[in-house]
């Protein structure tokens, strides 16, 4: 009797989980497997196994450039996001006038389609855009417009613009869940503001910062639409993958091999990052 009801309960649990599992296996696991298999097939063939797709990509100097570029972009953007988010969060938590407005401003890059953000930034930073008009207007010694679009620093700026909200939101919520008494305790104990920040606030919100920056990093690493339209000659991995199937005939095996390399790099990096995060928050 008890066995029966336990079995039934397991059955109910399983049937409740079924849609989620179906979605996971059908829309993620199976397609991933297809990609894995495809990456091991010779181009254009459905039989035979080969590593040539990996080797032919990894053995080129271009592969290194692409991977370095991808990491440079995503890590720089993550770092910038952290610096910016901490400053912003420290300001916003004081609840100055208009802080609600800025809180809302903070999430705009996440709600608006990335393509549009990128388009707006391209127009703003263009050689005839407002940014250059302003710079040339204020600093007369700047004679030529500053080239920002289609450069690496420009891309980092775009990435940061688009993906910093993850970090900013978690940092702000970590900061606001701090017990104000702890800061007062440090204050009374003789710590000046810099000490309080350095020894008390930063260590305590570090888990929040890291958790948010993981999201920023993942988004920046996998970014596709932004470098596609704003990258110019700089192609990170995602664009490199897409360019393979944009050819005629499409090179699915080559694209799949690159996708696998990208996925593995991200998983490896995330594992390391997560380990640091766990250690820090213990």
């Amino acid at each position: 009797m008890r066995r029966g009801s336990k079995l039934r309960s397991t059955g109910v649990t399983l049937s409740l989980l079924l849609p989620g599992l179906a979605c996971f296996f059908g829309l993620f696991f199976y397609p991933m497997m297809v990609t894995v298999v495809r990456s091991l097939r010779p181009e254009g063939s459905d039989t035979g196994w080969t590593l040539v797709n990996y080797i032919s990509f990894l053995s080129t100097a271009k592969a290194r450039d692409v991977i370095v570029l991808t990491f440079t972009l995503s890590l720089s953007a993550t770092l910038l996001s952290i610096l910016f988010s901490v400053a912003l969060a420290l300001i916003l938590r004081k609840k100055l006038g208009g802080h609600r407005f800025f809180r809302l401003t903070m999430i705009i890059p996440r709600v608006v389609p990335g393509l549009i953000g990128a388009l707006g930034l391209l127009l703003f930073f263009g050689s005839r855009g407002w940014f250059n008009l302003l710079v040339m207007g204020v600093f007369p010694f700047v004679e030529k417009p500053i080239q920002i679009n289609y450069t690496v620093p420009g891309l980092i700026l775009f990435y940061t613009w688009l993906y910093f909200p993850f970090t900013a939101l978690t940092t702000l919520s970590a900061l606001e869940s701090l017990d104000p008494g702890i800061e007062e305790a440090a204050d009374v104990a003789g710590a000046n503001k810099w000490h309080v920040l350095r020894y008390v606030i930063l260590p305590l919100i570090m888990p929040g910062i890291l958790a948010g920056s993981v999201l920023t990093f993942m988004a920046a690493f996998g970014a596709f639409s932004i470098p596609l339209i704003a990258g110019g000659n700089y192609r990170p991995l995602s664009v490199e993958i897409y360019k393979q199937i944009d050819l005629t005939p499409a090179r699915w095996s080559a694209a799949s091999a690159r996708a696998m390399i990208m996925a593995m790099l991200q998983v490896i990096f995330l594992t390391i990052y997560m380990r640091i995060l766990r250690r820090r928050s213990r």
């Binding site: 017990d179 204050d187 009374v188």
Partner: peptide, 28 residues
């Protein structure tokens, strides 16, 4: 505050959660 040379005990203790007992006492 930090220049007033005070010692304070708080209702909710307000110990630094990321420091050990030793580090907490050592902080000032």
């Amino acid at each position: 505050t930090h220049k007033r040379e005070l010692g304070m005990v708080f209702q909710n203790f307000a110990l630094f959660p990321h420091m050990t007992v030793f580090e907490n006492v050592e902080f000032p």
